[in-house]
């Protein structure tokens, strides 16, 4: 049993850390409801509201007078397309690596995972060279097109997701598949009717985390896309809502907070599965 002193120590460690680590988000929330007068009065206590605060006008400014909603829409389009491509490529590969191939499958899995360590830093210059030079479907190039991101993002979501899924597939008892095979089901049928339905939680986890990787990219979006109506939230908020020295701080904070909260909630819900898959790929 754990003593009450141990409990107290836990709170004494976790409390301050939780406060400091979450502080920027609290501060975003607070700032996003402030009026100009309130925000830029140096004699104010910044932790209180006053001078007409709290107000929701920063949010209506964000939605009605900036291209924020366009960026959100673009992010959703890219996210959905990337997740679809990722699933089509990663799910079969991960299953085959976990189940159909022996030792070389494990080595190859680790090999695929290592490509996840090749950072965008090394790749964005050659890729931007390719994307601006090679005509695709009548266009001069994919520069400034959302499709450039759809094409490039799977280069990190596929290795990452394959690795996670390998971990999940390994946890499915072999007996289930063998029973289906004895009953005369083909390998493909076993895959579609037994393996995939059981792996649904794992696949959902991969969807969430791939989407999160997409929203976290900054380098590719910055290098490939310069027109404001093709931007995603990752670069749009920073490059468009800050104009020269003019900062729309309240709207900025609203813009950064809004996508963060739902993503963080989903992230937290699937975290335990993520841990299981992430460490299960090789370390089991």
């Amino acid at each position: 049993m754990i003593t009450s002193r141990e409990k107290l120590t836990s709170y004494l460690i976790l409390g301050p850390f939780a406060l400091v680590l979450a502080f920027p988000f609290y501060w975003m929330l607070w700032t996003s409801f402030k009026t100009e007068l309130d925000l830029y009065d140096i004699n104010n206590v910044p932790f209180f509201f006053g001078h007409g605060s709290p107000t929701t006008k920063n949010y209506s400014f964000l939605f009605n007078e900036t291209e924020y909603l366009t960026w959100v829409k673009n992010t959703a389009i890219v996210g959905v397309a990337v997740v679809a491509i990722t699933l089509v490529l990663a799910v079969p590969a991960a299953y085959a690596l976990a189940r159909l191939s022996g030792r070389w499958g494990q080595s190859m899995g680790v090999g695929i995972f290592l490509t996840y360590l090749v950072p965008p830093t090394l790749l964005f210059l050659p890729l931007s060279y390719v994307i601006s030079h090679f005509p695709v479907g009548g266009h001069a190039g994919l520069q400034d097109s959302l499709w450039s991101l759809v094409l490039v993002f799977p280069s990190f979501t596929v290795p990452f997701s394959t690795w996670l899924l390998m971990g999940f597939f390994k946890t499915i008892p072999r007996e289930l598949e063998e029973a289906a095979r004895v009953d005369g089901a083909s390998r493909l049928r076993t895959l579609f009717q037994i393996v995939f339905p059981i792996s649904l939680p794992g696949i959902l986890t991969v969807i969430i985390f791939s989407f999160s990787l997409v929203v976290n990219d900054f380098v590719y979006a910055l290098a490939f896309i310069t027109t404001s109506d093709s931007k995603t939230i990752s670069t749009g908020v920073f490059t468009e809502l800050i104009r020269g020295d003019i900062f729309f701080w309240q709207a900025l904070m609203a813009a950064t907070l809004l996508p963060s909260i739902p993503l963080a909630l989903l992230y937290n819900m699937f975290l335990d599965r993520f841990i299981a898959g992430f460490t299960g790929g090789a370390f089991r």
Binding site: A22, W249, Y267
Partner: peptide
């Protein structure tokens, strides 16, 4: 507690870093 502690990793970095820009603002 876990939710609050995980937040900085769960939220998109290109957005949350803008929060720090404001926290480290020159005047405010």
């Amino acid at each position: 507690l876990r939710f609050l502690i995980i937040l900085p990793w769960a939220a998109p970095v290109p957005l949350s870093t803008i929060g720090w820009l404001w926290i480290y603002d020159s005047l405010f």
